[in-house]
Design a protein around this nucleic acid. Structure first.
Lengths: 154, 154
DNA sequence: TAAAACCCTGGAGTGCACTCCAAGCAAGCG
DNA sequence: CGCTTGCTTGGAGTGCACTCCAGGGTTTTA
């Protein structure tokens, strides 16, 4: 009988011998996939999928083939998480991951990619601030009109 | 042979008798779908789809059944566009549109929805600024490390 | 040692937001 | 009148980012 992997995982409590969900020092950093789930908020499915599409570096394995993530992998997932919520397509992140794997000679290209991404993020922040202004105006309008028109519901 | 609607539409030039792509005064505001395409950057497909799913108010029609958008419709599409780029799901915008259609008694609910959206936008801006800080640190690191020795992954 | 919980794989399925298709009607122009 | 371009519909297809399944092997707990 197969357990539904993504429900009922309370890996944050009683996860292991005395560690909480905190990071362990380098050298003891061999996290199971469910620990990484607790850490990142991603599902195990998604972590395996990230690996399949080439978004992850090579992940170490136990002698029986189970994944063992390192602190370095967690750092990488942190960056991926940040980039993800800027709206960067996964394909672009895969491109960046490829550049990292290819070694030092892709240095310049990575630098340019990061700078372009930064500009994208700046632009998105500006858009959102613009939207915020629109919402503020609408909310002010509603609040003002509410003084005059609100008859029921308060 | 059917024309591919979304390619080669040069509706911005030679669109009508002497108006450009600018808005016309109220009273003469009966825009065709392709004018709205030029105005909003959405495709005609998307505009019709918005209508089907209930995201638009009732759109006026010509005597032969073609859509004629008003300035008011353009304003609404402007708000939709803003909300869209905050990442708000279309279903939520449909909910808001329904409240508007239902009339004045949904006033309070709309107000609350707008305020909640504003907080979402604020949170997203904060996230992005956080991401920006991460990118800035990485970029500084890349710039400092120079071309010489750059082995990194975090 | 046995049950429960966890982890593995390739491939198929899901939800969202469009995006396009086919066939036909309509409108302006020479 | 025909030609070209534009607009109409319901329904099917696309791309992205997951999300889940079936059927097994592994590790931990009682």
């Amino acid at each position: 009988m197969t357990v539904m992997e993504t429900t009922g995982t309370r890996a944050d409590s009683c996860a292991g011998p005395s560690w909480g969900t905190d990071r362990r020092p380098d050298g003891q950093d061999r996290y199971t996939i469910s620990e990484v789930v607790a850490f990142t908020g991603l599902t195990a499915h998604t972590l395996r999928w990230y690996e399949r599409i080439g978004l992850m570096p090579h992940i170490d394995r136990s002698h029986t083939g189970q994944r063992r993530y390192s602190n370095r992998d967690l750092d990488w997932l942190g960056l991926v998480g940040k980039l993800r919520l800027t709206g960067m397509p996964v394909a672009d992140m895969v491109r960046y991951a490829e550049l990292v794997r290819e070694g030092d000679h892709t240095y310049g290209e990575r630098f340019e990619l990061l700078k372009a991404t930064r500009e994208d993020v700046r632009a998105r922040i500006a858009e959102l601030q613009d939207t915020l202004a629109v919402l503020d105006r609408k909310i002010t309008f509603y609040a003002d009109a509410g003084q005059a028109l609100a008859s029921e519901r308060s």
